[in-house]
Structures are given as structure tokens and as C-alpha cells.
């Protein structure tokens, strides 16, 4: 449905999007994930025809974004980061305007407007001025505007940003209800968002594609390695934190040791293992053999959050090192 090949967008000094390629199948919900400023919005704007790409190709439903923008625009519903609303218009009036802009005929517009209002549960506010609506309702009017012409592809830029938890759940449910008939790309920097509503994730950081996979695969990919929270209680200042850390790092199979906390005479570490290595028993043995008090040893699951940080963090490190050279 959506095909992106080698997409690059350069501004005067910065590269916002750097050689990104991905594909989205019909009917999928894809989460577009990345820290702020990663290039999510730019990529979406290129897909919607709002911005041209510097290099590379993007096509939606078989139409090239650059060569036949009108055909693409007819098939896309787009919710920008700030919903494009006119505060002086009533909700139904606005939706009729947006619908007609997207090519719905005058004969059809009333029915389509009612349909969109129904699907986004805007019935209560349909004749209110948009300027007087709460943030949650505005976001929903924005979504209604995106789905009114029944597009094949929905592109939503941070659909849940700035909403309260109840509203977020409502929007999620709405997205789930829409997912059957539409292909949806939604961008977010909130990971739980992706875990909840997406089938696939595309992670970008600093304009580069870092990972793309199904949500399940991504979490599995790093499940092979384990993370362990470890608490050592020193007696009379022995051992020192650095000493413990060094000793732990020497344990075979350990990839990383992080000092988490050192209050009330307790030293808390988080230890991560290499892929497919069990390190818990070895860690326990090391601590006890050294004659220290082992207070706690507990496995911590790697969440999507950690994966994300690992992927994007590593990327940033490379970049910095590259800069030094």
C-alpha cells in the first residue's frame, strides 16, 4: 500500500530524513517511532505530498507521491501534529468543508459528515464552535477530518499527544475500530502507544531507519538477553561501589553493569547479559564468594522502552564518535 525507497530530505544545513526505505501492507497499523526531531513528521509530510523529497521515491496505493500528487492526496487522510482546525467554524460545518475539499460531492456530503461524526463520537458537539472545544474533542475532529472521504491510507502525526489518559484510551479504541478498512501509519514518541495499537514498528532516529519489525518480534529479539537487578549491602564501607562494579563486569556473559542507586548503605546495580546467556547463578556466586551481603537478585524484563533506548542510544553514540573523527 505504501512503499518508500531511499527517501532523503535535506534542508539547508541538516538532513532530516536519511535514506529511509520501508513498505506497509494493506490494512496494517504501523507505528512510526522515534525521539522528537527524528524525522517522523518530515517523512509523513513527504508521504502526504506536503513536502517534496530531496531524493528517493515514495508511493501510496501505486501512485508516486511526486508524479501524481492529486491521486495520492485523494487516497490519504492526514492528521498533522496540530489538527488543522478553524476555530471560527462549527464542527459539522468544518467537516463539510474539509470533505468537499477532498472531493466529496454536495449530494453526498451530509451523509459522509454524519458518518464521520458518528464514528468519532462527535454527536454532542456537532454544532459547537471548534474554538470552544476541549483538546480531546479537537483531536477527534482532526481525525474525523482525516477519515471523512474514506481514504485507503490514514497518516496520523502523534494522534494522542497532549491528551489525558481517558482520552488516549478513547482515541486508541477509535484507531482499533478504523484499522479494519484503512492502512494506518501513526507516529509517536510514546512507546506504550505502539505496544497497544500497532502491529508493526518502524523506529527512526536522527533521520535514519534503526529497526523495522513486528512488535512481537522486536520484543523477542532482545528477550534472549536478560537484565538483572542486583543489590549488595556493604558492611562498614566495604566493598566500595567501584570494586563491586569491576568484579561484576568480569563475570562471564555480562555485557553491561550499571550503577542504579547507592543510598542507605545499599548498592543497587542493573546487570545485562549477552544474547542467550544465563548469568544469575554466576552473579550470585561471585558476590557471595567475595564475602559481600547479597540482598536481592531479581530478573527485570526488557521493555520496548529499553529496546528503543538501546537502538536509538547506540545510534547517537555512533554519530558522536563519527563527529569526533
Amino acid at each position: 500500500m505504501i512503499k518508500v525507497e531511499g527517501l532523503t530530505k535535506r534542508y539547508a544545513r541538516t538532513v532530516a530524513v536519511n535514506d529511509i526505505s520501508f513498505e506497509v501492507e494493506k490494512g496494517q497499523i504501523v507505528g512510526f517511532l522515534g525521539p522528537n526531531g527524528a524525522g517522523k513528521t518530515t517523512t509523513m509530510r513527504i508521504l502526504t505530498g506536503f513536502l517534496p523529497a530531496t531524493q528517493g521515491k515514495a508511493s501510496v496505493a501505486g501512485f508516486d507521491v511526486h508524479e501524481s500528487p492529486m491521486e495520492v492526496k485523494k487516497r490519504i487522510g492526514y492528521l498533522p501534529e496540530t489538527p488543522p482546525l478553524y476555530p471560527e467554524m462549527e464542527v459539522s460545518e468544518y467537516l463539510e468543508y474539509a470533505g468537499q475539499l477532498k472531493g466529496i460531492t454536495t449530494g453526498d456530503i451530509k451523509r459522509r459528515t454524519d458518518d464521520a461524526i458518528g464514528r468519532c463520537s462527535l454527536g454532542e458537539v456537532r454544532s459547537k464552535l471548534i474554538g470552544k472545544l476541549s483538546k480531546g474533542y479537537r483531536q477527534r475532529v482532526g481525525i474525523a477530518q482525516a477519515i471523512i472521504h474514506n481514504p485507503d491510507v490514514l497518516i496520523l502525526d502523534e494522534p494522542t499527544s497532549g491528551l489525558d489518559p481517558k482520552q488516549i484510551i478513547e482515541i486508541r479504541e477509535l484507531l482499533r475500530a478504523l484499522s479494519g478498512e484503512h492502512t494506518i501509519i501513526l507516529s509517536t514518541h510514546i512507546l506504550s502507544e505502539v505496544e497497544h495499537s500497532c502491529e508493526r514498528v518502524i523506529i527512526i532516529s536522527q533521520g535514519k531507519l534503526v529497526a523495522q519489525d513486528s512488535v512481537a518480534n522486536l520484543t523477542n529479539r532482545l528477550r534472549g538477553s536478560e537484565a538483572v537487578a542486583l543489590e549488595v549491602a556493604p558492611v562498614e564501607g566495604r566493598p566500595a561501589a567501584t570494586e563491586v562494579q569491576q568484579r561484576l563486569e568480569q563475570v562471564s556473559g555480562v555485557s553491561r553493569v550499571m550503577m542504579k542507586d547507592a543510598r542507605d548503605g545499599r548498592l543497587v546495580f542493573e546487570v545485562e547479559s549477552l544474547q542467550g546467556r544465563q548469568i544469575r547463578s554466576e552473579l550470585a556466586r561471585t558476590v557471595v564468594n567475595a564475602g559481600w551481603n547479597l540482598n536481592e537478585l531479581r530478573p527485570v524484563g526488557l521493555s520496548l522502552e529499553d529496546i528503543f533506548l538501546q537502538l536509538t542510544g547506540a545510534e547517537q553514540k555512533d554519530e558522536q564518535e563519527g563527529g569526533k573523527k
Partner: peptide
């Protein structure tokens, strides 16, 4: 930002 509505409509 409403310009985005106009410029992404056909």
C-alpha cells in the same frame, strides 16, 4: 497550520 489541510487535500 491549517495550510496543511489545504495542501494535503486534492
Amino acid at each position: 497550520g491549517t495550510i496543511e489541510l489545504l495542501m494535503t487535500s486534492p
